[in-house]
Amino acid sequence: MTVPNPRELAVCTCPLVDSEMGRQATVVAIACGDHDACRLRAMGVYEGATVSVIGKRHCLLVDVRGTRLALGAALAEGITVRPQERAAH
């Protein structure tokens, strides 16, 4: 078990685009157009979902509970996440 680093916890939120690769993060807000937001929620990206960025290209490759999604950069800009503390197990 790693002890949570208080400095890391202090890093509050950031857009999904800037999320660290491979690190799990919790979605806190989805500020895309209503239509895209509705779609994202249906595909498992909802407020409270755990996601992690696994690739950055012209789109973002995101893991959502084992599903791989390609999200356009503009969308990933509108999704705000809070990085989770590193899982030790």
Partner: peptide
């Protein structure tokens, strides 16, 4: 242009 939302299935 609509941003991409695409599932990459296994």
């Amino acid at each position: 242009v609509r941003p991409m939302i695409l599932e990459l299935p296994p």
